[in-house]
C-alpha cells in the first residue's frame, strides 16, 4: 500500500480527535439549549473562564491582583502556595456552579418569556462580560495549564507502525488528543446515564420537552436552570482543561465556541450524540480538505471550511442530522 494511503488515515484519525475536542464545547451548548431553549453563545468563554480559574487556583494567583495593585499601589501577585490539581479542579467546579447560580439569579430570571433572539443576545453580552471579568481577575497573559496529562506524540504507536509502507514513518497521534477522546466518551456516557436514569435527569428531559407542563407537575424551572448551567459549566471546565493543556490558556480559547456552532448545526441543536457525530464530521472534513485541497488555494482553509460545510448541509436538511424536525404553525 502506498504511503499516501496511511497518511490519509493519519489525517482522518487526527481529524476525528480534533472533532471530539469541538464536540466537548458543543455538548455544553446542547445541554443548555435542550433545557431552556437558550442558545448560549457564552459557552466558549465559560470554557476560557473555567480554565483561567483552574490555573489561577492551582498556581495560587491573587484574584484581581493587577487591579488591586493599580488602585492601591501594592505589589501582590501570588499567595505563594500550590494547590493540588484535583482540589483545584473541584474548587474551579465550585466557581462554575456559583456562576450558574448567579446567571439564573441575575439574568435568566428577568428574561423569562422573551424571544429566543433576545436571550441569545443576552448571552453574547454575558460572553463579553465574562471575557473582561476573567482577564481582570486572572490577567490576560497566556498561561500554561498542566493537570498531569501526557503531552506530545505517542512514540509507541509511531514506532510500531513505522515501515508499513515505503516512505511511511508511522502514525503521529497526540497523546493528549487520545486522552481527550477517552474523556469525551466517558463524559457523554455519564451524561446519557444521568439524563436517562436519575430523577433529576428525568426532570431535565421533562423541562426540555415542555416547560409549561413540567412546571404544572411541580418541577421547579429555576432549580433546573441552575442545574443545567452548572452541568454546562462542568462541561466547559472539561473542555477548558483539554484545550488549555493543548494550546495554553489564552483568549483564542473563547473562539472555539464559534467552531462549535457548525458542529451543532450538523448534529442538530437538541441531540447529544449529534454533537459528537457532528464534531467528528467537521473535524475529519476540515482536516481532509486542508490536506487535499488546501495547498492549492493558499491554505488556512480550516478558518471557514466548517461553516461552509454546515451551510451547504443545512440547505438540504435544515434541522441537522439528529435534530427534531422543525414543525411550524401559524
Amino acid at each position: 500500500m502506498p504511503a499516501t494511503f496511511f497518511y490519509t488515515i493519519e489525517v482522518i484519525a487526527n481529524g476525528l480527535m480534533t472533532g471530539v475536542m469541538y464536540s466537548l464545547v458543543a455538548l455544553g451548548f446542547v445541554l443548555i439549549f435542550k433545557a431552556s431553549g437558550v442558545f448560549n453563545y457564552a459557552q466558549g468563554v465559560m470554557a476560557l473562564f473555567a480554565a483561567l480559574t483552574l490555573v489561577g487556583i492551582q498556581t495560587g494567583q491573587v484574584p484581581f491582583a493587577h487591579l488591586i495593585n493599580t488602585i492601591f499601589g501594592t505589589h501582590y501577585d501570588k499567595f505563594g502556595w500550590q494547590v493540588p490539581t484535583l482540589v483545584a479542579i473541584l474548587l474551579a467546579l465550585g466557581v462554575m456552579i456559583l456562576f450558574a447560580y448567579l446567571v439564573e439569579r441575575l439574568i435568566l430570571k428577568h428574561l423569562v418569556n422573551q424571544d429566543p433572539i433576545i436571550l441569545f443576545m443576552a448571552t453574547i453580552g454575558l460572553a463579553y462580560f465574562m471575557e473582561g471579568f476573567g482577564d481582570l481577575m486572572w490577567g490576560s497573559d497566556i498561561k500554561k495549564l498542566d493537570v498531569g496529562l501526557p503531552q506530545g506524540g505517542n512514540l509507541w504507536l509511531e514506532g510500531a507502525t513505522a515501515g508499513w509502507a515505503e516512505g511511511f514513518y508511522g502514525f503521529y497521534l497526540d497523546n493528549l488528543d487520545m486522552w481527550a477522546t477517552a474523556i469525551a466518551v466517558v463524559l457523554v456516557a455519564s451524561l446519557m446515564f444521568f439524563s436517562n436514569y436519575t430523577k433529576t435527569g428525568r426532570a431535565l428531559r421533562a423541562v426540555a420537552d415542555d416547560n409549561q407542563a413540567a412546571l404544572s407537575v411541580g418541577i421547579s424551572l429555576r432549580t433546573i436552570w441552575v442545574i443545567v448551567w452548572s452541568l454546562a459549566g462542568f462541561v466547559a471546565l472539561v473542555a477548558g482543561i483539554m484545550w488549555g493543556a493543548k494550546s495554553g490558556v489564552q483568549f483564542s480559547l473563547s473562539l472555539i465556541a464559534l467552531k462549535a456552532l457548525p458542529v451543532l448545526m450538523l448534529g442538530g441543536f437538541t441531540s447529544i450524540p449529534g454533537a459528537i457525530v457532528g464534531g467528528m464530521i467537521i473535524g475529519v472534513g476540515e482536516k481532509l480538505f486542508e490536506f487535499s485541497v488546501g495547498p492549492y488555494i493558499g491554505g488556512a482553509t480550516e478558518n471557514w471550511f466548517a461553516y461552509v460545510l454546515a451551510l451547504l448541509f443545512l440547505v438540504f436538511r435544515p434541522q441537522g442530522l439528529f435534530g427534531e424536525k422543525i414543525i411550524e404553525r401559524v
Binding site: 428574561l111 433576545i118 443576545m121 453580552g125 454575558l126 463579553y128 462580560f129 471575557e131 473582561g132 481582570l136
Partner: peptide, 16 residues
C-alpha cells in the same frame, strides 16, 4: 478589560 465588562453588562441590562 473594563470596557468589555461594561459593554457586556450594559447589553444585559438593556435587554432586561
Amino acid at each position: 478589560h473594563f470596557e468589555f465588562v461594561i459593554v457586556g453588562a450594559l447589553i444585559i441590562i438593556f435587554l432586561i
